[in-house]
Design a protein around this nucleic acid. Structure first.
Length: 574
RNA sequence: GGGCGUGUGGCCUAGCCUGGAUAAGGCACCGGCCUUCUAAGUCGGUAAUCGCGGGUUCGAAUCCCGCCACGUCCGCCA
């Protein structure tokens, strides 16, 4: 158990003991007070109601009953709160020990037995990834890293749409359109080169019904398992998918497995699901097509019919998605999906169907709002997009300019390029992950390339500063005396570092990766204050110097570990 | 029309789940700090009836109800 967890537990147990005298069931929650009113606080107001005493009276009773201990140095009743002051020397000792011992696993939680499948990105392979949905891979990959840190066995999956209309349109375009009719793309990656075929085929399809019919025919053949069609579609989207993978790798995102939708059609599991859904009482037929009535499940609107089987006997995306989820439920203990907000209804429908089919594990879904452009939403079909590849390039280029501005005289070209890469990609990921997923983001180049304030260079710079100090010493074995680290900047920093495991715990439990961004910013911020107040290398007291070096080393570890949760690298110099 | 999501200083964000002690940061703006471990830093200042109106509560940014604005969905698309 990590130091602060132990400390919190002890405080809660003490309170529990005293409260037991009141003979009422009560759940204890310890909070953090503002200002310098202690390290932990326990509000007595709700208790006052239950046992008919004033909050301050109760606070006093509790305060008196709690003995000082290894952790607790002082307990005070103040304005209805019990304020706890913890032994900072002890906290310093055990926290630094824990960090320096665990190093790259400090903050990580105990290994758990559960397997987690996190589905994210799952973009149609018909063109390059664009910024409108860029939150998906970034949130998804951060969750993957977070859950690994929280001790789970994690697998990331990309649900590959190889059966739908979108890939059929792409394939039709590639096989029927001539290159000269496709608007040229600068980027030579296959996904960029191919997207024009998709866009043009889409336009043609809208005006030409025979094309629409041909594409519909492709979809039907696919579903029947026609070998040549499968081959044709597969060879069309594969290069595009490779391009998508390359883009993801550029921002440090690796996906463990790609699960094609067709799997569930060809292994007949979709057929089984249809059969089972038809047997439920909510199933109805209309013009030979089948649907579930969603009204009893609290889904309202103009149309509450969830069609899962077309009149022509072919399945729908959501139907196949049900099969996919049943399959996932057999291979994991916890399922997490990262989906755009446009999938909210579909996710509900799938969930209801899974419940009707008595599936044991239902997915926990993280929805995100689209990143839109000032004029409205992005659209691959209409070509109104900012592609992820272009944003990556711009971020790196902007970072390069900034490094060059500052360090051109000191660093080599390749060093600057290397730093620019780390800062640029970090910036892209951080700017997206730091805001909660449900919040709308309007994309502007100004914001996307913002390197000021709560942005990644601030955090990476703090890390670089720590590395710089550490690089100027000839040992990395820093012995420390916890009684010497008593400056308020030192104490604030140590307390912040001690919090890291609790931050991981909370962020993973609540599926809220953005809360780590706040923490990361705070660590960098208090480290900068320490840097200002407490000289390290020039400190003449050798024991204090060594103790501060230990603290710098610990900070460096926490910053690096936290950045790693975001897939952002921690440069040693900037 | 209905469902869901969002609304916090001029701008952006955290806090909302689990109500609690002066609403926390960043940008911008104003004024300081580099012969001292990289100033991509730091200190101070100006600036908010937490969308609006009710309710619950000793106490509401937080919970409940109504309304408004924006986003999103209500396809035998994905």
């Amino acid at each position: 158990m990590y130091p602060l967890e132990e400390c919190k537990k002890e405080i809660a147990e003490h309170i529990q003991k005293t409260i037991a005298n009141y003979h009422i069931p009560y759940e204890i929650r310890v909070e953090t007070p503002p200002g310098n009113m202690g390290d932990f606080a326990f509000p007595c107001f709700p208790l006052a109601h239950l046992i008919k005493k004033s909050p301050n009276e109760i606070a006093k009773e509790i305060a008196i009953s709690i003995p000082t201990s290894k952790w607790i140095t002082k307990v005070e009743a103040q304005g209805g709160y019990v304020n706890f002051f913890i032994d900072s020397t002890n906290l310093t000792a055990v926290t630094l020990q824990s960090i320096l011992k665990n190093k790259e696993t400090y903050g990580y939680l105990q290994k758990k037995k559960e397997k987690v499948i996190i589905e994210h990105t799952s973009a149609n392979p018909n063109g390059p990834l664009h910024v409108g949905r860029a939150r998906n891979p970034i949130i998804g990959d951060t969750l993957v890293r977070l859950y690994k840190a929280a001790g789970y066995d994690v697998e990331s999956q990309f649900y590959l749409d190889d059966m739908g209309k979108q890939v059929a349109i792409l394939a039709w375009g590639i096989h029927h359109l001539e290159q000269k009719n496709i608007p040229p793309m600068e980027n030579t990656k296959a996904d960029h080169q191919m997207v024009g075929y998709y866009q043009t085929a889409n336009e043609r399809m809208e005006t030409d019904t025979t094309i629409a019919k041909q594409i519909g025919e492709l979809v039907k053949k696919l579903e029947r398992g026609d070998h040549d069609t499968i081959e044709m579609i597969h060879s069309s989207y594969t290069p595009v998918l490779e391009g998508i993978k390359q883009s993801l790798e550029r921002i440090n995102i690796h996906i463990d497995s790609f699960v094609p939708e067709s799997t569930f059609v060809y292994d007949k599991s979709v057929d089984r699901i249809i059969k089972e859904l038809k047997q439920t009482t909510y199933c109805h037929e209309e013009d030979d097509a089948f649907y579930l009535d969603m009204e009893p499940f609290g889904i309202h609107g103009r149309n509450t019919k969830f069609f899962f089987l077309r009149r022509d006997g072919t399945t729908l995306y959501a139907t196949r998605d049900i099969a996919y989820h049943q399959w996932k439920a057999q291979h994991a203990d916890i399922l997490i999906n990262v989906l755009g907000e446009d999938h909210r209804l579909e996710a509900q429908q799938v969930k209801v169907a899974l419940e009707l089919l008595q599936t044991k594990i239902l997915p926990k879904v993280v929805f995100y709002a689209f990143v839109s452009l000032p004029g409205g939403k992005m659209s691959t079909r209409r070509g109104r997009v900012v592609y992820l590849d272009d944003l990556i390039d711009e971020c790196i280029e902007h970072a390069y300019e900034e490094v060059k501005k500052r360090r051109a005289n000191e660093l080599t070209e390749s060093q600057m390029r290397n730093i620019a890469e780390q800062v640029g990609i970090g910036s892209l990921r951080y700017n997206i992950i730091k805001v909660q997923p449900e919040k709308d983001i309007v994309f502007t180049w100004e914001d996307a390339l913002n390197f000021e304030g709560n942005a990644i260079p601030f955090i990476q710079y703090a890390h670089a500063r720590a590395c710089s100090i550490l690089s100027k010493t000839n040992t990395n074995l820093h012995t420390f005396d916890p009684t010497l680290l008593i400056h308020s900047s030192e104490r604030t920093l140590i307390k912040k570092l001690a919090l890291f495991p609790l931050v991981i715990e909370e962020a993973s439990n609540a599926c809220k990766p953005h809360s780590i961004a706040n923490y990361l910013f705070e660590v960098a911020s208090v480290f900068n204050q320490f840097y200002r107040d407490c000289p390290v290398l020039s400190e003449e007291n050798t024991v204090l110097r060594s103790s501060r070096l230990a603290l710098v080393s610990a900070t460096e570890i926490v910053l690096k570990n936290a950045l790693n949760l975001f897939g952002i690298s921690a440069p040693a110099e900037m």
